[in-house]
Design a protein around this nucleic acid. Structure first.
Lengths: 187, 187
DNA sequence: TGAGAAGCGGGACGTTGTTCCACTTACGAT
DNA sequence: ATCGTAAGTGGAACAACGTCCCGCTTCTCA
């Protein structure tokens, strides 16, 4: 038995930089953003991407996981940091919309591996529905939201609003999501 | 007023060869089949494709129209040529499944132009639902089909069975469509 | 501090989309 | 039948991208 040597620290840093850069690029240019540009933004070579994430799907999945986690953790901390629960909800939804770009791209990137996709989807629901629920409950208790919409229902609605062909300038998901949220408020 | 000179005969021939080759390639390799290969199969240069069909969507649309028409015309003639109405239905559905590959690819190829896509979809329904209806009616009258399924319902069912990520070897739409048709039969 | 392993960058190559133009061919006038 | 011409053609050339690979750099541990 040989003890496995841990990952080198610079390698770990590169992986983080890569994930951050990929997340940005996905937002700006979709999940089909050129490998070269992602590498350039992260300040690494293309070889480094291929070593860490052999296929595009691997990279998308990794970003997906990071974002699910970030989204899940952001819920409680926003709730604690903001005066208004509704404001926290708004900011959280904004993060959630960012994340949906990756999520929708995921299906496209995982053309084969359907079972893997469903596993990730289950993870996503399990992790985020309660977070959204807490935000909604808090906002409702503060009388900032009157609708008794269920968390999953809201998330699905937002998700559907974000289904769009990339590069269509006549459709702005974020605007519609904003309108939806305003609809939740007491007037 | 200048009289417009008609299209040259060799140009017309090339357009036909191109449409036939493209239809084959779409079936074998999906609507993203390389331009070069389509051109090679048709025995023309890539330039010829770009002159006739400036964008990939143009080519897909042209193939789509040809196939809707072929499918529509095949209905009555199969009904006349075959002994059994059910057999005619089976063969027609087989053509229909071929066509669906192009149809589903169409949505992908027309990422922008959604209104144009819906126009084509309306044309498709208008033209094919009655044809499918005639085949169903004939098979029902011959007591070869017992279900009273509506044409549109059947076509939607088949269409949904054919939704699959290309290159997934674990899912064979044709097999499932076959099972569906068997379900229509009296036993 | 030095040797060896781990990791890195980016050059090189293959594939595909797209443009362009010198050459070929069909058509209509004569 | 012949010929001038516009329409049409093929494929070379270029650009953008994914992918592989290897000489060099950097970290780690003793």
């Amino acid at each position: 038995m040989e003890a496995v040597r841990g990952k080198r620290s610079d390698a770990m840093r590169n992986e983080q930089k890569l994930l951050a850069a990929a997340a940005e690029m996905f937002l700006e240019a979709g999940v089909d953003a050129p490998i070269r540009e992602i590498a350039a933004r992260a300040g690494v070579g293309t070889g480094t991407i291929y070593r860490n994430f052999p296929t595009r799907a691997d990279l998308v999945i990794a970003v997906y996981k990071v974002q699910v986690e970030a989204c899940a953790e952001a819920g409680p901390s926003l709730l604690a940091a903001r005066e208004s629960a509704f404001e926290a909800l708004e900011e959280w939804v904004d993060l959630f919309v960012d994340f949906l770009v990756t999520k929708h791209g995921l299906a496209h990137a995982m053309q084969s591996d359907m079972s893997g996709f469903e596993a990730l989807h289950a993870y996503f629901l399990e992790r985020l529905v309660p977070v959204c629920g807490d935000l909604l409950t808090a906002a409702t208790k503060a009388d900032e939201v009157v609708s008794d919409i269920k968390p999953l229902e809201l998330m699905r609605g937002i998700g559907n609003l974000c289904i769009t062909r990339e590069g269509d300038p006549t459709y702005n998901p974020r605007h519609l999501v904003d309108l939806l949220l305003r609809g939740l408020q007491a007037h």
